[in-house]
Design a protein around this nucleic acid. Structure first.
Lengths: 195, 195
DNA sequence: GTCTATAAAGAGATAGAC
DNA sequence: GTCTATCTCTTTATAGAC
């Protein structure tokens, strides 16, 4: 009832994605109805289908968008240097990037089950691409004798799990600043792979 | 259609829990219907209500059961020793316990959102209890000068996140045995908190 | 203890008016 | 581009027969 008819494709589209992001993160994909999303946007349920062919595509767009942004952001800011510097850069980048997008991160880790098989394959490949960034850094450090890591791929997954875990407890209003959290985690990561 | 009428309370009860565990882990709580659970058990949907007052209680029972077992298992096997030995024991215990119950672990981490507020508080308290076990070990090691950990509680969450991450990739049929995985992770954890 | 049947509500998606 | 209305299906949970 809030609005009468009108044309708002340029603003409604993003609003649909934002509402879906917020609601999927809070309640889970399966628990959120198209009517709830429409309610947040301020339109009726039928109007959503001007912006997405179906609910599944909405989820896939959010997850693929997040993974593409993550990888592009790393490629944009990563500067080739020695393994130790690259590892520090990766650690700080991961914490900062993920802390700014808690909802997208949450969805990308929690809603893999709700992707249909074709979409799942795409997202999994992107996740592996990102893990391989870190695994390659670790391998380079091992070759240079700076790191001691028996299984670079396993260590990469372990470090990423540790870093992503920040999102489960970090709050902007909390006792520790993000800069302090970065320091603490960089200290741990450095030691984890140390020679 | 599979069965005619009969009395099976002693076996149907556990089967309901097992089916819910499997289905919730695979598809997510919200995506699973009581009819699906009933189908797995081999009864009609209405019969489930002899074993659980509602779907929410089924989820809560699974999650609380898992957390209670986790804490009891640690208390049963933990032997008070020096911090380094306790840390190794915790590391190996965590990996072993969690690798044996991938479905319960998955549910306990993914379905927190789907607990009602009262149930959520209970599960969160149990999770904190478990985190504090590790935080206390780390504090003891810092006091003894064996560990260097600026924030024991943060480090505890970081280590637990790293260890729980094993469940996202470990498979019994995979290249690495669980014993090898234990060795790799113990090596990393030891270094992470090293003085 | 399980069945069948059903109540009451809500789901995803579409059609056609404006 | 959005609305209202609706189709069709599924949901949780309950009632009463056996």
């Amino acid at each position: 009832m809030a609005r009468t008819q009108g044309s708002h494709s340029d603003i409604t589209g993003p609003k649909v994605r934002e509402a879906a992001l917020r609601l999927f993160a809070r309640h889970g994909y399966a628990a959120v109805s198209m009517r709830q999303i429409a309610g947040e946007v301020g339109v009726q349920a039928g109007a959503l289908y001007n912006y997405t062919p179906d609910k599944q595509s909405l989820l896939m767009d959010l997850m693929k968008g997040h993974m593409d942004e993550l990888i592009a952001a790393w490629e944009h800011q990563s500067s080739a240097r020695d393994p130790m510097a690259a590892l520090e850069q990766f650690t700080r980048f991961h914490i900062r990037f993920h802390s700014k997008r808690p909802e997208a991160v949450f969805i990308s880790y929690m809603e893999l089950r709700n992707l249909n098989p074709e979409n799942f394959i795409v997202i999994e490949a992107l996740r592996r691409t990102y893990e391989d960034v870190l695994a390659d850094i670790l391998r380079a450090g091992v070759n240079k004798g700076e790191f001691s890591v028996p299984e670079p791929k396993v260590a990469a997954m372990a470090v990423i799990a540790m870093l992503t875990g920040v999102n489960t407890w970090y709050r902007d209003e909390g006792r520790l600043s993000l800069a302090q959290v970065e320091e603490i985690y960089w200290g741990m990561v450095r030691k984890t792979v140390a020679a």
